[in-house]
Design a protein around this nucleic acid. Structure first.
Lengths: 232, 232
DNA sequence: GCGACTTTGTGAACGTTTGCACGAGCGACC
DNA sequence: GGTCGCTCGTGCAAACGTTCACAAAGTCGC
């Protein structure tokens, strides 16, 4: 079977960078750039060139020495490795501001994610159309998940409703959950849960900002340590 | 001056976890839990207890052996370390779905972030009130930043407008930027930029999902490797 | 005040990630 | 077809992060 699937395991740190490379490479394609060196890509992504090469080498990717990488082929390879070469069907629970922002987020359909439904329990939100999808009652979740064979659920509810949303998603048969609510939801083994808290990033940012301020006021006249972090 | 500021540098990995501990501890406070052990906190955060202790020890925190940590004091310490013990004034550029979601995001004011303005160039969005703040024209950005002494800018524009937004923010005097647009924005040294791409997380999730699927179909009858990742 | 028990704080071992440095392969040009 | 210059792929060492394991330091009951 599958002659070229799933090679050696790719390090988590690398997996986290692949989507960024992918995006940058897509931009290059739009600008009709056919070829790119690890050094150029590294500059775009604000990382080290050796890291780029090592990351790409995990995919068994072949660049050409003396030349660089074929952008189109690289895009193809990264997409395949991330599983973006087939369609992912997702549902969003919570049709508030965040749920609406996510439904309308262009990055999703672009990358092969189809939003099969947006759900809420608030009567006043039902039947509104957000991002081209009609908001349905949460009670219809299981049916849609089963019928459309949805494997990923996105939680965009307030904190208090997140665990319930997770339970319903899991019961419906979803196996991966992306949780935007600012709580830790628990799930049985075998369910992958990732958490994104918008305010966490802000807190990390203000930590660095604060650090810079106190450093500046304490170590006056000492040259500032290198700042300008980029990417996450 | 300042008898107890800025001790040894805290590892990035720890800084990224502190906001999560903080949130969990706040929940405990609401439930009138006055004391917590590293083991309990570790369970809540889905991490290892030794990691919790080490993380907390970087702050010079003192738990009590045989008892645990005083929740309230821990909250105080983490807040101070993250710089949440004073007010941060932020502005949001982009009043689309995401900008609105962010303005309305409860987690911000809760943690000492004040939204001083939401800006857009789309005439049709001006003067709408989102999250209690009136949308103003981007041309007013510099004035507000200067007047209110804003130090953090959030970019919630479409990809194409992000770099311009960043330039304007930097020119206005903002020193830290949180970028939600799916592009890498460049900034001079000394400006801290963090990037959050909502679709990156989804791609990491689908990578794992895909991996699980192919593993299941290839290594049938081999017990599944431990899954259920938690947190980011 | 003492012994049993609990939980912290941290040294040391281990694993992962990064970055350097350099050999190897490719294209271009003479 | 040989030489030169460029860029990949990767072994290795250093940096960083995680986990174990245990002494130290506390509580509690008697």
């Amino acid at each position: 079977m599958s002659p070229h699937r799933s090679r050696r395991r790719i390090p988590d740190a690398t997996v986290a960078r692949l989507p960024i490379y992918l995006q940058l490479l897509n931009e290059q394609l739009e600008n009709e750039v056919a070829n790119i060196s690890s050094d150029e890509l590294a500059n775009l992504a604000a990382v080290n060139a050796a890291k780029v090469r090592k990351d790409l080498s995990y995919m068994g990717s072949y660049g050409t020495r003396g030349v660089g990488y074929d952008v189109e082929y690289l895009v193809y390879q990264i997409r395949r490795e991330l599983g973006l070469d087939h369609e992912w069907r997702i549902v969003i629970v919570g049709a508030g501001n965040l749920g609406q922002a996510l439904s309308g987020y262009g990055g999703f359909p672009d990358r092969g994610y189809t939003i099969e439904g947006v759900f809420d329990i608030d009567e006043s939100k039902l039947d509104h159309v957000v991002g081209g999808v009609r908001v349905r009652h949460l009670d219809d979740l299981a049916q849609v998940v089963a019928q459309k064979d949805v494997s990923i659920g996105v939680i965009a509810t307030p904190a208090g409703a997140a665990q319930d949303a997770a339970n319903r998603l899991i019961k419906s048969g979803v196996t991966s959950i992306l949780n935007f609510a600012p709580v830790v939801v628990s799930a049985p083994l075998g369910i992958t849960v990732r958490r994104v808290d918008l305010s966490v990033e802000l807190q990390i940012l203000s930590y660095h900002e604060q650090r810079r301020l106190t450093a500046a006021s304490q170590l006056r006249a000492v040259p500032a340590e290198s700042s300008s972090h980029a990417s996450a």
